[in-house]
Design a protein around this nucleic acid. Structure first.
Lengths: 247, 247
DNA sequence: CAGTGGGCTCGAACACTGTGCGAGTCACTT
DNA sequence: AAGTGACTCGCACAGTGTTCGAGCCCACTG
C-alpha cells in the first residue's frame, strides 16, 4: 500500500548531469499535445515515444508511471489559469476572471476533466493557484471554513459546467456533423419519446431553445450560474461580514 | 463516422425468443457491482464474463461495446436519483432533495464521475429525471432558457463538488490510512512549502480546518454552496418573475 | 418426424496496452 | 585505462477490447 504522500510531487527529482536527449518537460509537453489532439484514448507510451523520436520505454527514466505523467500534465495545464491579484479589482470581478479562465482551460484540454475525479493534484501550479485564490478571497472578507467553501463553490461550478459541455462537444465532434444536422436527426427521437416526457417536450418546444446557437447557450448558461452564485455569496457576505466596501 | 444518434438508446433492441442464460439487465447489474467494488479500472470484459460464469465474448451478443455497456450502467444508476413531484414541497426543498440525492448517488458510484465528461447520456432514466426536473422548475416559476440554466446550475454544483470529493476519497482509500495519519504525513510537506504559498499556509493554520472531520467538512461545503445558489436564484426569481408564492 | 434456421455461447486470434528487466552506449572522473 | 553512472531501448509478459467462425440447442416448418 503506497503512502498517501507518495506522488510525483514528493519524490525527490533525479539528479541530472549528462546531456540527455529527453527531458521531463519535453515529455509532458508532447503528452499534452497528444492529449489535446486526440483525447485521453490517444495517449499511449509507445505513441508518445514515437512522437519524440525515441523508444517507448525510455520515457520511464524520466517519469515513473503513466499515471505520474498524467498528473504532471494536469498540473501543467492548471498553470494556464490566471488568478488576479487581490486589490486590482472588486472581488466579484476577480472571481469571475478566475472562473472564466478555468472554464476556458478545461474546454481547451477536455481530457483534464476526466482526470479530476480520479486523484487530487497537489502540484506546484495547483498550489500556486490555490494560494492566489486564498489571497483573493481573504481580500474579499472571507475567512475560516467559509473561505474554503466559497472556493469549492466556484471551482465546482466551473468543473460541473465544463463537464457536461465537454461531453456534448465530444459527441458532436465524434458525429462530425453540424449542429443543424444533429438537431434534425434528434427530432424524430424526441417526437417519439415526447409522450413519455411531456413536461420536458413542452418546455423544449415553448422555450425556443432548439433554435439558438449552442455555443452561445453554453456561455450564457455558465454566466447565468456564476452571477447567481456571486449574488448568493454577496448576500451571505453582507449578512455575515457586513463590510460591503472590500475590494 | 457514426451518426450522432447512433447510440444504445436509438438502436432497436434485439428480439428475444429463446431462454438465454445471459441478459442485458443482468450484465449491467454485474458491471455496476464490479465498478462499485473496484472502480473503473476493475471492469474488464473478461472479468465481467467470469463473474457471470460465462465467456467474455458472450457479452457482445447483448451489448455492442464496452462503451455501450458503460452508458447503460450510467443511465441505470442515474435512475437511483429521486426527483420530487412538483407541488409536494416548496421549490427550494424540492431542488435540495434532488441535489442531495444526486450527490449521494455519485459518491456511491464514483466511477460515474469520470464518465460524465466523455459522452452525454440520453437513456430513459436520465430522460425521466430531466422531465421531472423540468416539472419541478416550471412549478417554481422558471421558464424558457432560464429554466435550462437553473437546471444546469444545480447539476453543475453537484457534479463539481462530487468530483473533487471523490478524487480525495480515492486517494485516501488508495493510501489505506486514517485521516489522522494522512494529516501527519502531509504536515512536513506543508511546512516545507509554506514559504512558497504564504496566504494559503496562513489561512490553513488560522482557519482550523485541519482539525475538523473531513466528511463533515465535505457535507458542510456542499450544503453551503447549495444554499448560496438557492439564495441567488431566489433573488433572481423575485426580480424577474415577481411571484414569491409559487410552491 | 426430419430438417433447418436463428438465437446464443464461446475459444482462438489480432492488434494493442503499460511496464520490468537487462543489455548496451556514451561522457565523465579517477 | 578502467570504471562509474546517467540514459536509451529491445524484448518479453500479462492483460486489454473486439472480430470471426465454429458450434450448440431449441422452435419452428415441411
Amino acid at each position: 500500500m503506497p503512502e498517501f504522500t507518495d506522488s510525483v510531487w514528493t519524490r525527490p527529482a533525479r539528479p541530472r548531469t549528462g546531456q540527455p536527449t529527453l527531458s521531463r518537460e519535453q515529455i509532458v509537453r508532447a503528452a499534452i499535445e497528444l492529449l489535446d489532439a486526440e483525447g485521453a484514448a490517444g495517449l499511449s507510451m509507445r505513441r508518445l515515444g514515437a512522437r519524440l523520436g525515441s523508444g517507448a520505454t525510455s520515457l520511464y527514466w524520466h517519469v515513473a508511471n503513466k499515471d505520474d505523467l498524467l498528473e504532471l500534465a494536469v498540473d501543467q495545464v492548471m498553470g494556464e489559469i490566471y488568478v488576479p491579484e487581490p486589490g486590482d479589482t472588486p472581488w466579484r470581478v476577480g472571481v469571475s476572471v478566475m472562473a472564466d479562465g478555468m472554464r476556458a482551460m478545461l474546454l481547451r484540454h477536455t481530457w483534464v476533466i476526466g482526470l479530476l475525479g480520479v486523484r487530487p493534484t497537489i502540484g506546484p501550479n495547483v498550489m500556486r493557484m490555490g494560494n492566489r485564490s486564498v489571497a483573493l478571497l481573504l481580500a474579499a472578507g472571507f475567512t475560516g471554513p467559509a473561505l474554503s467553501h466559497v472556493h469549492s463553490l466556484i471551482t465546482a461550478h466551473v468543473i460541473g459546467a465544463a463537464t457536461t459541455e465537454a461531453a456534448v462537444a465530444a459527441a458532436v465532434q465524434r458525429a462530425g456533423q453540424s449542429a443543424a444536422e444533429i438537431r434534425e436527426q434528434l427530432e424524430p427521437f424526441m417526437e417519439k419519446t415526447a409522450g413519455d416526457y411531456p413536461d420536458y417536450a413542452r418546455w423544449r418546444q415553448e422555450s425556443g431553445v432548439t433554435e439558438m446557437d449552442p455555443d452561445q447557450v453554453w456561455d450564457q448558461s455558465f454566466a447565468f450560474g456564476l452571477e447567481r452564485i456571486l449574488d448568493g455569496l454577496e448576500l451571505w457576505r453582507v449578512n455575515n461580514i457586513g463590510d460591503t466596501s472590500a475590494a
